[in-house]
Amino acid sequence: MTVAALFEPLMIALILTNLALLVTSRTGVLIRLMALQGAILAFAPLFPPAGVPTHLALLCLAVFAIKAVAFPRLLSRTLRRIDADSRIEPYLGEGLSAAAGIGGLLFSLWLEGRLPVPPGLFAPLLFPAALTTIFTGLILVVTRKNALTQVIGYLAAENGIFLFGAPLSRQGSAWLELSILLDVFVGVFVMGIAIHHINKTFESIDVGRFCTLRD
């Protein structure tokens, strides 16, 4: 088996982490799944392995450091501080979310057949895997009431978008990707601070308690 053949199993693993994200209710497990997803993503730009430019290797390293190490640590630190593993009921249950995720996967597979993909750009399974990851993220953001889970959803959506962009990062320099990565990093940092304040002020990170501002 060549190295290139590893790509498809990697994408299948990514899709499976998405489904796992949707059926999990424990925040600690969600964070570990995010770390796994980050690690998988760090390898994605390296396919096909022939002729990987230096800036790309640098990008992969940064992705690994941020998505697989820094984010999970930041999130678990927040989780430990606020002790929020008490269950917060989601708007939409795990079963239905998973069904929505599978729906997203099927839609992505269907869409791949319909769109004229530029030849040689997307490796097999990359398109549906990326789109499913985006859907998973959006489902988590919309259907969960736990502020930390919403941040994890946002990260999953960003992961999917990153995977989309991965084949394009062969051309040109990596500074833009790096700055985007940095932006996302700061974003999560700011959200982490906000969660801390929410916990302090509302004594919970259940955003279902946000009901003052409406018309």
Partner: peptide
């Protein structure tokens, strides 16, 4: 509380 609620909505 209210500004926090607004900030969270805005951020997310």
């Amino acid at each position: 509380r209210r500004s926090l609620e607004a900030t969270w909505k805005y951020l997310l």
